[in-house]
């Protein structure tokens, strides 16, 4: 494999920046959607950016030790690496060096970083939050992994650019959502949980465990977690689009797709209360898993 250093360097810098910008808009969209549903006006356009800048500009910054700071670096680094490995129109050099499995496991690195940092804060609310977040991960990853297995079976590859190419060759009929609707549905539900949105929102739980992982986060620490939220929305939507919606032919359709994908859970989240932890696990292991298994068998039968 020949390394085109120049191109790679551009990807390395441009992709995270793009992801951050798109993510900021997604956050804004989510907040506006919420405001609209609650018959409010909602925040101004630049609000997500102002929040982050304000947090970074705080005069005092509380640190609970080196691990607290390193973990934020790991979190940001993992997120940036994740964006780089996503296949988006025009940028897929790095996507060829890994595959869907690599990406799924890379997605856990920032989570792990955050978990370590939160634990280093020595606040039990944070630890409980992390315990719940990991529990939620155990819950939503089961249906999600089944859908990934189904996609790998259907396309015969785990390479993300390949998957996009296969879908785009066949047009709309080739889309994963058309070929395997059950799996697409299961993945959509797990995505809701992956983003930590109601009814699967168990680990922030402000009224219960004081925002869990964010309890002791202040200033730029909290700001970095806001950045992480932008990246997370972007990553999950791009992954879903890649597996089920034919990826992006060009940036216009690509952006439409990913915003639609994010809009669905962001809308749903406002009309649900929260489940209890064990209820989340039970529900996710029951319905989406069953749907995904049926979908997997359908795929395997073909």
């Amino acid at each position: 494999m020949d390394f085109d250093w120049q191109h790679m360097l551009i990807e390395l810098l441009v992709m995270p920046t793009l992801a951050f910008v798109v993510g900021l808009v997604m956050v804004l969209m989510a907040r506006r959607l919420r405001a609209r549903i609650e018959r409010r006006v909602g925040p101004p356009f630049w609000q997500p950016l102002w929040d982050i800048l304000k947090l970074y500009s705080k005069r005092t910054q509380v640190s609970h030790g080196h691990m607290h700071e390193i973990s934020i670096i790991v979190l940001l680094g993992g997120m940036i690496a994740m964006e780089v490995f996503l296949p988006v129109p025009g940028f897929d050099t790095f996507a060829h060096h890994g595959d869907a499995l690599t990406l799924i496991y890379l997605m856990m690195v920032p989570t792990l970083g955050m978990a370590l940092g939160v634990s280093a804060c020595a606040n039990p609310n944070g630890s409980i939050g992390i315990a719940r977040a990991l529990t939620a991960m155990l819950a939503y990853d089961v249906p999600f992994i089944i859908t990934v297995a189904g996609a790998a079976m259907l396309y015969g590859t785990t390479s993300l650019p390949e998957i996009i190419a296969i879908q785009q060759q066949q047009g709309l009929e080739g889309w994963g959502a058309v070929q395997m609707p059950l799996l697409a549905l299961a993945a959509l539900i797990s995505m809701q949980a992956m983003l930590g949105k109601e009814p699967f929102e168990i680990y922030v739980a402000p009224a219960e465990i004081a925002t869990g992982p964010m309890t002791e986060m202040s200033g730029k620490f909290l700001g970095s977690m806001f950045i992480m939220q932008c990246f997370q929305l972007y990553t999950v939507s791009v992954l879903y689009t890649t597996l089920f919606l034919g990826g992006g032919e060009n940036w216009a359709t690509f952006l439409i797709k990913i915003f639609v994908v994010v809009a669905i859970p962001m809308t749903l989240t406002n009309i649900f209360p929260r489940y209890k932890t064990e209820a989340v696990v039970a529900w996710l292991w029951k319905w989406p898993t069953a749907i995904a298994l049926v979908g997997l068998f359908v795929v395997m039968m073909r």
Binding site: T60, L76, I80, F85, S224
Partner: peptide
Amino acid sequence: VLLLGMGIGAGIFLLGGNKSKRV
């Protein structure tokens, strides 16, 4: 890429705000 990403992350985080104080 992960290491480079962490480098970028460290740049953003360490240079981006006031220096922190251990409590």
